[in-house]
Amino acid sequence: MLTLTLLVLLGSMALALLRAVKGPTVYDRILAANAFSTKTVLLITALGFLVGEAEYYVDIALMYTLVGFIATVAVLKVSEFGNLGQSGAVRSTPAERPNK
């Protein structure tokens, strides 16, 4: 069952990657990256159980959960405000121009 889960997770990662490659907008890519990070976290945890060293692998997965969230919010902050929140910024966003 663990093997099946691993294969399914790899397949889902491939699907998310497909979405990231296809786009079409930046938001689709951010969404794909976020979904990808969730799946990577699950994959790392499952790998830990497969190898039998789950104690160490879970620590990394936990860290990824938190770092992935911070990264997503940072990305969205840039897409919405055009920078990382330096004061005096205007709300003209790079993301407003639709992506080709």
Partner: peptide, 11 residues
């Protein structure tokens, strides 16, 4: 956050 950013930035 993503939905909100997309709502503001997109059609």
């Amino acid at each position: 956050a993503l939905a909100r950013a997309a709502l503001h930035g997109l059609r």
